[in-house]
Computed example of a mutant assay.
Amino acid sequence: MEDDLHDASVMPRDLTFHFLQHITKKFSNDRIIGHGGYGVVYKGVLDNGREIAVKKLYPKHPEIDDDKQFKNECINLMRVQHQNVVRLLGYCHEISHKIWPYDGKYVLAEVEERALCFEFLPGASLDKHLSDESSGLGWHARYKIIKGISEGLHYLHNGSKDPIYHLDLKPANILLDKSMMAKIGDFGLSRLVDSTKTITTKDIRGTPGYMPPEYIDRYKITAKFDVFSLGVIIIQIMAGREGYSRCGDMSSQEFINLVHHDWLKTRLTTMSSRTTHEVKICIKIALRCVEADRVKRPTIAEIIDELNKIDTVNRSLIDQVTYSRSKQEFD
């Protein structure tokens, strides 16, 4: 079974709570690697030494339908398999009855345990890598993360007949592997939708700062919800944690010039003219994504087209350099 957990061709497994206790040392505090809105994430170590992430959901809240979050994340992730989406390895939903002391008596109480198991990603979440300083991740790593998130979102929106809207994209829900490849995680608020419809919800659930105005003001959900969140994330990747609030105080062109100037100032000795062009393109994409009018925002497919043009230009330049060097060696 342990080998099956890491086999991409095998469907996520139904796991026992006893097994999860075993691999997490009974969910000990020293195995905690993160906290989410709906549970605590632990590192699980299998008997063969491989590692997985185990998200143990919080006990049910009487006023919140948190079973919906569990079902959303489990069922929606069952449908997806993409290098930029965190892979679901298994799940656990067990109900047992135990005798507990209560008010001087013993009572039979129902105990419900819910957990989800994912591939373990040693790079932690993106929010751990963001800062307000221009130092830290270089442009190549940042661009790779931007492209990876965009590819994952493109797959969710267009990879099957029924799109999946994530609805809670933020740096804490973007996980990184050892090579800094970005993977979208935490699908607790995600929805499988009919792409022809605009959804109207009854309440606001999500993370302030990443929700578009039409959702906050009119409870409207479309594919442009995730695009808005992506724009905020790209701005933070390029201009630090406070980047989005800074861009609200100036025109688009002023912000583009500011971020471009910051990158030139700190990376002058290492940034090529091609890189500065890439920086400008990504800032422009991000600013279009956070337009207040959702109609003006690009689709994720249009964003991928623009990023692919950057890659095409880069491949062409690399081919030219390779050809030039080969020609010099031949001559």
Rank of each mutant, 00 (worst) to 15 (best):
L121C: 11
I164R: 03
H166A: 11
I300V: 15
L137N: 01
V85S: 08
T322P: 02
Y155T: 10
S9Y: 02
N158G: 05
A8N: 05
I145D: 00
I199R: 04
N48Y: 04
I310G: 12
C117E: 01
Y165I: 13
L137C: 09
V45M: 02
Q236N: 03
L258H: 15
A292G: 14
T207F: 02
L116T: 14
I204M: 04
H22S: 09
I33A: 02
T270D: 15
S125V: 03
K197H: 04
D103Y: 12
L20P: 05
I52A: 08
E73R: 12
I283L: 15
T201P: 07
Y219P: 10
V259Y: 13
T200F: 13
H22D: 09
K25I: 02
P12W: 11
I145E: 05
F19T: 07
T222H: 06
G152T: 09
R315W: 03
W139G: 04
K161D: 15
F255K: 04
D331A: 06
E110I: 02
R218V: 07
D3Q: 10
T16F: 08
C282Y: 09
L89V: 11
I99A: 07
E306F: 12
S134Y: 04
A286R: 06
K265Q: 13
V107L: 09
E112F: 04
K147E: 13
Y102C: 11
K183E: 01
T201D: 12
A115F: 08
T276R: 13
R205T: 14
Y323V: 06
Q236G: 01
A292D: 14
S229H: 04
T200W: 00
K183A: 11
D319K: 06
K202A: 11
N72D: 11
L121F: 01
S195L: 09
L307A: 01
F330L: 13
N76D: 00
L264T: 12
Y210K: 12
D103I: 09
G104S: 08
E254K: 13
I199E: 14
M180P: 01
N29R: 09
H6G: 04
D127Q: 09
R87P: 12
A223R: 03
E2T: 08
I237P: 03
E329G: 03
I52W: 03
K265F: 08
I23T: 02
E214L: 09
S316W: 02
A301G: 08
S96F: 10
I32Q: 10
S9F: 06
L137K: 07
D162I: 02
K280R: 14
V10Y: 00
F187M: 01
K202D: 12
F330Q: 05
P171I: 05
Q83N: 12
K183V: 08
V80I: 11
Y38L: 00
M181T: 01
N76L: 15
E242C: 09
V295C: 13
G209W: 07
M238Y: 05
C92F: 00
R191F: 00
C92R: 08
C92W: 00
D203H: 11
N84C: 12
I235G: 10
D217H: 09
E329W: 02
V10W: 07
V40Q: 03
H260L: 15
N173W: 01
